[in-house]
């Protein structure tokens, strides 16, 4: 499912945005080795302060699994300001009908453990579809997107090949980067939907998404107490071992006595005969300890 977050509704989705910035840090600084600014494990740059629009993919539990950012090419954007190397110093494309999409990424770590082997591919297609459909509904005809060659291959393999490129492929971090063009036509949208077998609406309405995020928060808070409560009660063997360990590690007579007292208290749980047996063993143990200690001090 896809949520669109922009300057108008970002106050509803801050936890989601934080997760997105953390995912971007892992992908762009970690995996791709780009020189990006990281603060508190989050990758945030000057364009994030310009009220861009984010297209965010989430799973059923509202975990962020993918994200991308779009900006108008009429105003400040990455190709005009920081990716100028790709354009070899040439001025960037500028049109009210063209948006720039950057910071496209998918949480492959989270998805690789999923039962379905196609989870990453599906998340990638769904995010692409999110960008294309959101752009189309906004009167955008084409997207210019900064990607690495791996993503370029992924696009070509998923029925979503760029219709062209602008500038050159240049080294960036551990990979290379290039600028690709994608039209936001019904035909392309249909091709991506068919490839990934995505039917129906992919966008979650704003109010529903905000509710789901609240539910996630509530679940997370419940989860903490739930974990304590749901911890299984110790088995009899564990209880016996615990008492025994307590005695064995007793450094003083006082501690040994306290351990023996605990056994008395737990008599009905452990069983009278077992307690007697434990106490007999314990008594021997504490004697042994005394002897060892005397021995040690004797040597000293």
């Amino acid at each position: 499912m896809i949520i669109t977050v922009d300057g108008l509704n970002k106050h509803l989705f801050q936890p989601l945005l934080d997760d997105m910035f953390r995912l971007r840090a892992r992908v762009f600084s970690g995996r791709l080795g780009w020189e990006v600014n990281i603060e508190n494990d989050m990758e945030i740059d000057q364009f994030d302060r310009m009220d861009p629009a984010y297209i965010i993919g989430v799973d059923d539990e509202m975990n962020v699994i993918s994200c991308a950012r779009v900006l108008q090419t009429t105003g400040p954007h990455m190709l005009s300001d920081v990716f100028s190397a790709i354009l070899c110093g040439e001025p960037p494309v500028r049109s009210a009908n063209i948006w720039e999409s950057t910071r496209f990424c998918v949480d492959t770590e989270r998805l690789k453990n999923r039962e379905s082997k196609t989870a990453v591919s599906r998340a990638t297609s769904e995010l692409m579809l999110g960008i294309l459909e959101y752009a189309q509904a906004s009167g955008i005809t084409d997207i210019i997107t900064v990607i690495d060659p791996i993503m370029d291959r992924v696009l070509k393999r998923s029925n979503n090949a760029p219709h062209g490129y602008v500038g050159q492929t240049v080294p960036m971090g551990k990979v290379k980067a290039l600028a690709a063009l994608l039209d936001c036509t019904d035909e392309r949208i249909q091709r991506v939907r068919e490839f990934a077998d995505i039917k129906g609406e992919i966008f979650i309405p704003e109010t529903l998404a905000a509710e789901k995020l609240q539910a996630r928060k509530a679940r997370a808070e419940m989860g903490v107490t739930g974990a304590v409560m749901s911890k299984p009660a110790p088995s009899l063997a564990e209880l016996q071992n615990y008492c025994f360990d307590l005695l064995a590690s007793a450094d003083s007579k006082k501690e040994a006595e306290a351990a023996l007292m605990l056994m008395e208290v737990l008599k009905d749980k452990l069983g009278t005969s077992d307690v007697a047996e434990l106490q007999r063993l314990a008594a021997g143990l504490s004697r042994q300890q005394e002897e060892t200690k005397t021995c040690v001090s004797g040597t000293a």
């Binding site: 001025p91 500028r94 049109s95 009210a96 063209i98 210019i144 219709h163």
Partner: peptide, 16 residues
């Protein structure tokens, strides 16, 4: 290059 890519450059040139 593709027809669509020519179109993109034309859009951009017109606006500029």
């Amino acid at each position: 290059i593709s027809n669509r890519t020519v179109e993109v450059h034309l859009r951009s040139a017109r606006e500029k």
